[in-house]
Nucleic acid binder design. Sequence first.
DNA 1: CATTTGCATAACCACCTGGTTATATTATTT
DNA 2: AAATAATATAACCAGGTGGTTATGCAAATG
Lengths: 104, 104
Amino acid sequence: MTARRDVFQAIADPTRRAMIGLLANRTLTINDVAENFVMSQPAVSKHMHILMECGLVVMVKKGREKHCRANLSALEEVARWAEQYRAFWNDRLDILGDLLKNDE
Amino acid sequence: MTARRDVFQAIADPTRRAMIGLLANRTLTINDVAENFVMSQPAVSKHMHILMECGLVVMVKKGREKHCRANLSALEEVARWAEQYRAFWNDRLDILGDLLKNDE
DNA sequence: CATTTGCATAACCACCTGGTTATATTATTT
DNA sequence: AAATAATATAACCAGGTGGTTATGCAAATG
């Protein structure tokens, strides 16, 4: 709720999509996450921060560690947006042919 | 198929998402599309070009006009990616509580 | 208490993005 | 043939993005 960042923009980056996949069914610290990518720790921290800002990741600080987990319900907006068009692409298979057809 | 541009990046921009909605069940020319947005014609042309590059829009030139239509099946990739996580967010409702819980 | 660890922050960089205006190109209209 | 219309292209610009290294700081460890 009240996501400040746009979730569509957050998932535009393939690295962040991979992070979501990583944290879908696992709780990892920032360093754990960083081990899965060939980039510096600050770069990973920034990505995680963006994911948190739009609600896609939830973090809980425990001592000096930060335990992170994906909050996948934030993807509902994306799923619904894409799915609203499913009827269209199931229905009208050949748009190109359709476009060309009306040249009388 | 063989989309050169990333569809996730294409839909990251709200203007382009609006254009997809506009062309979901309508065939419009570039100028028709431009009338729906408060930006210059070249700006609209660029957005449409990006949508075309990743297969989200199909265009057919007819004389000096260009007839455009959304090819919504290109959204299947997005829908499938988001939907793969639906089981997770249906299953585990309170991630935050879950995260906090294991502090024994 | 000194050191190490986990993470954030700052400053910087190259490149990308989304917009602009001006102009070119091609097709239609008069 | 000249004028107009539809679109593309070029050149430019401000601000954003994704990365870096260096450093700071709180928490855990020896």
